[in-house]
Write a protein that binds this DNA or RNA. Structure first.
Length: 472
RNA sequence: CGUGGGGUAGAGCAGCCUGGUAGCUCGUUUGGCUCAUAACCAAAAGGUCGUUGGUUCAAAUCCAACCCCCACAACCA
């Protein structure tokens, strides 16, 4: 039995959960359930990122204490994750005292690679952030959002010497010791790595207070990424406990926009601590809405809760795991969603279960239990490569194939002609194959798989009381 | 000359690495079946594979140039 550790990106809690978070959770959940089905022991982390200026300001705007604000939002994410049926084992919060203490200790362990330096650049007091030189030129020195001229600011920050590890990181990526999926992202990161400068990992308290104070320097607070990335190991108990049972992680799931932090800065931190790198970093794509990126300004944001409420959780998981490519961007439209639900879940699968169950029940067919549930080789290959949408296609092929076989083998005419033995044999074989497909379905749609199992579990086959997927 | 991805039937995509008569799902049309959620099965129609050139007996696939779309480069997954 292997021990495996799977992680998700911890969302920044200045907003509500959206569909992108759901994507991350669902993929990681499939991975976790798959390995559990293989007999492995799985630790599965979820959490929330709760420090930083934006959160601080948002709480101020709402006129509530910051801690109260993050408590409330973190809770929102937690209940969202539960609504998605995500089988996590650990929930980490970056404002927990344990995390904060561990992060400070991690910082101290890294001190050989940390140095202080001056930073000088253009700053917008409206946006409260530094802007790039290029941006400065494009906007002629005036912030377009705030109509204020940029100011030249100077501050002292701590820097992490990524340069110390660049060569090792490059080797790890090239050799797939830390496998980046998909391959084209790997190429992108390798290129990016070359030009990555040392990273500023703190901010003066004059600018940012809501964060973890730098050990031994009350005037500086850790930059959010430093704090956030560490969650993957602080939740395991690092540096207090020995984490070698669980670390390195089997797979870390992240959105493509934050891949760079996880494949450059994060490995550099791990190397600084003398820890191994994660085995795999999976970068998934974005969910588009009518072909465009979801954005509040355009007003095309699709609320995940709304989508779940439309046809239920299983339908939600179905769509985002099968019709949204694991690695590339994919589109969501309500039309496609209901098409997938009605044509595929209801007609293909729901109806298949119904017809087999009814046939078995009407003709008193008894089903011998199959004890050995196995995944097909091709399925295992795809799942191990995290090509979940493809693996799901494979399962669906089996389901469609069963509908074909029922038509070919015509069990109803066997029944009419009183060919009992042949009927039993035929039904047994069909139901066996359905249950095998159902087994492969279970990491994707655990609820549905459970129900289907129940239909054929007893001595007598009991068709579902209500359709698995009522048409809508 | 920033980096990366994409351009294949009405729509969404696979195939490209490892060249060899162009494939899947949905939709459309026609036929079949009746166990089933008017579900299921079969057949047909529909594409000069972004453009141009090159390599080759042979290019969607390899090479070159160009055109168009998208994402990232700034803490919206």
């Amino acid at each position: 039995m292997k021990k495996r550790y799977i992680t998700t990106a911890i969302p920044y809690v200045n907003g509500s959960p959206h569909i992108g978070h759901a994507m991350d959770y669902c993929l990681a959940d499939v991975c976790a359930r798959y390995y559990r089905a293989c007999g492995d022991e799985v630790k599965f982390q979820i959490g929330t990122d709760e420090h930083g200026n934006k959160i601080f300001q948002k709480a101020k705007e709402l006129n509530i204490p910051v801690q109260e604000y993050v408590d409330k939002n973190s809770e929102k994410f937690k209940s969202f994750v539960e609504k998605l049926g995500v089988s996590y084992t650990d929930f980490v919060r970056t404002t927990s005292s344990k995390h904060e203490e561990y992060v400070r200790r991690i910082w101290q362990k890294l001190s050989n690679h940390i140095y202080k330096d001056k930073y000088e650049g253009w700053y917008c007091t409206g946006c409260e952030r530094y802007i790039t030189e290029k941006e400065y030129e494009e906007n002629d020195g005036v912030c377009p959002d705030h109509q204020k001229p940029y100011e030249k600011l100077k501050e002292e920050n701590y820097y992490y010497r990524v340069a110390d590890f660049k060569e090792q990181i490059r080797k790890a990526i090239e050799s797939d010791k830390m496998l980046i999926l998909p391959d084209f992202r790997k190429k992108e990161i390798l290129r990016l790595l070359e030009e990555t400068p040392d990273v500023s990992i703190s901010r003066p308290t004059s600018q940012l207070t809501w964060g973890v104070t730098v050990p031994g320097d009350e005037t500086q607070v850790m930059y959010v990424w430093m704090d956030a990335l560490a969650n993957y190991i602080t939740v395991l108990g690092y540096p207090e406990e020995d984490i070698s049972d669980w670390w390195p992680a089997t797979a870390q799931f992240v959105g493509k926009d934050i891949l760079r932090f996880h494949t450059i800065l994060w490995p550099a931190i791990l190397m600084g601590l003398g820890l191994p790198l994660p085995k795999t970093v999976v970068s998934h794509g974005m969910v588009l809405s009518n072909g465009q990126k979801m954005s509040k300004t355009i007003g095309n944001v699709v609320e995940p809760i709304e989508v779940i409420d439309k046809y239920g959780l299983e339908a939600f998981r179905y769509y985002f795991l099968r019709h949204v490519d694991t690695f590339a961007d994919a589109d969501f439209t309500w039309e496609k969603y209901s098409e997938a639900y009605n044509n595929e879940l209801a007609n293909d699968l729901g109806n298949l279960v119904q017809r087999l169950a009814t046939l078995a029940q009407k003709n008193n067919v008894r089903i011998d239990k199959i004890d050995d549930m196995v995944f097909s080789d091709e399925y295992v290959r795809l799942m191990d490569e995290c090509k979940y949408a493809r693996a799901f296609d494979l399962v669906w092929e089996k389901i469609q194939n069963l509908n074909k076989r029922i038509d070919d083998e015509k069990p109803w005419s066997l029944a009419k002609n009183g060919e009992v033995d042949q009927l039993n044999q035929c039904m047994q074989s069909l139901i066996n194959d359905l249950l095998l497909a159902n087994y492969e379905l279970s990491p994707f749609l655990p609820g549905t798989a459970e129900k289907i199992k129940g239909v054929f579990a007893g001595d007598e086959v009991m068709p579902p009381e209500s359709p698995l997927f009522p048409k809508g």
